Computed example of a mutant assay.
Amino acid sequence: MTPAELSRTVLSAVRRAVEADELHLAGPVPDRVVVRRPPRPGCGDWATNVALQLAPLTGAPPLAVADVIRGHLAALPGIARVDVAHPGFLNITLEGDSYDALVGLVREQGPRYGIGHHPAPAPQGHADARANAFAAALHRLHAATGIAPPARRPHPVRETADDLLRTLGPDATAWALLRPPAEDAPRTDPAELLAQRESNPLFRVRYAHARARALLRNAHDLGIGPGATEDLRHPAEAELLGLIADFPRTVQAAARHGAPDRPARHLEHTADAFLRFHDTCPALPKGDEKPSAVHGTRLALADAAGTVLANGLTLLGISAPRHL
């Protein structure tokens, strides 16, 4: 279940509560609700503040509104458990087969996951290197989502595009200009942006993508491949799954706000989560260990993570090499 699907599920629970005369709203049911990853482990897979959003329209305390919605939400398909947390959050745990369907969807859609193909007007050229990079990025966001991003006036850079390309190359230039929020001044130091070490976020993102692809190559050499994604409940697996699920929503939000820094940050989080998963949940058998279903499960998750990393880099105009 993707965040967009879960948002619609939460809205369905709200409508059921209204139809059952258990919620009395002084206004219409909202068109959308926000679901986010919980701030701490052990708080479910997703959280929503919909009860806090609706409480002023009901005259009831947020905790009471949350408890009403919880009863309807817990009965819907794909939901394993719903808990109410102070001051009125709903913490949602999905059923295991929801994750299986998500990974299957990502692997089926491949380069189309989170990225559509919509008509978008050609970007307007600008003299400033950063404004030009932003215009190109907003064009890609428009084409990916069908949403026309608002025009942004990003903080300019002193260097020309030719200077940046000569010192950084196209990939590091794109990252340097798009990763900071529009109002922040970019850092263009080659010592930072070209460093092949963990302190460089761009290197971590591209390295994580290369490691995901290397896992699949090595698995193929061992005669094993991705399998059904069952029992993905290790904290490192759950964290990575949540970020994979959240990629389409992040792309949509980036388009609505004209903010290519959002998918860039999402890539960093996904890369870090993948590397933790890689180190704590081996996807390949070690030594004399025989391949098992868990290896196939983790290979499928690695494949989905690699797809998200590749798609996000492509959205930013950055290459996603399979070897580093």
Rank of each mutant, 00 (worst) to 15 (best):
A4E: 14
L11H: 05
V14I: 04
A20L: 08
E22Y: 04
V29H: 08
R32L: 05
R32C: 05
V34H: 01
P38Y: 04
R40Y: 10
T48Q: 06
V50D: 05
L52D: 01
A55K: 01
A55M: 03
L57M: 15
A64R: 14
A64Y: 09
V65L: 15
V68I: 12
V68M: 10
L73H: 07
A74N: 02
L76G: 02
G78V: 03
I79G: 10
A80D: 13
R81T: 05
V82S: 08
G88S: 09
L90A: 00
I92Y: 09
I92S: 02
T93A: 15
G96D: 13
D97I: 04
S98V: 09
A101R: 10
V103F: 13
E108L: 13
Q109C: 09
H118S: 11
A120G: 07
P121A: 10
A122E: 15
Q124G: 12
A129W: 04
R130S: 07
A133Y: 02
F134K: 04
L138E: 01
L138M: 01
H139M: 12
R140M: 15
L141C: 13
H142D: 08
I147S: 03
A148P: 07
P149N: 06
P150D: 07
A151F: 02
A151R: 02
R152F: 03
R152S: 03
H155I: 12
T160C: 08
T160Y: 05
T160E: 10
D163S: 04
L164S: 08
T167H: 14
A172H: 06
P181N: 04
A182E: 12
D184I: 11
P190Y: 02
A191E: 10
L193I: 02
L194W: 05
E198R: 00
F203N: 03
Y207A: 09
N218Q: 14
H220S: 15
L222V: 14
G225V: 03
G225C: 10
E230D: 14
L232R: 06
L232C: 13
E239N: 15
E239C: 14
E239I: 09
L240P: 15
P248E: 05
V251C: 12
V251K: 02
V251I: 10
V251Y: 01
H257M: 13
G258K: 06
A259L: 03
H266Y: 06
H266C: 11
E268I: 09
E268M: 11
D272I: 04
D279N: 12
P282C: 12
P285S: 09
G296V: 08
A302P: 11
D303V: 03
V308C: 14
L313D: 02
L313V: 01
L313N: 00
L313W: 05
G317C: 04
I318R: 08
R322I: 08
L324H: 12
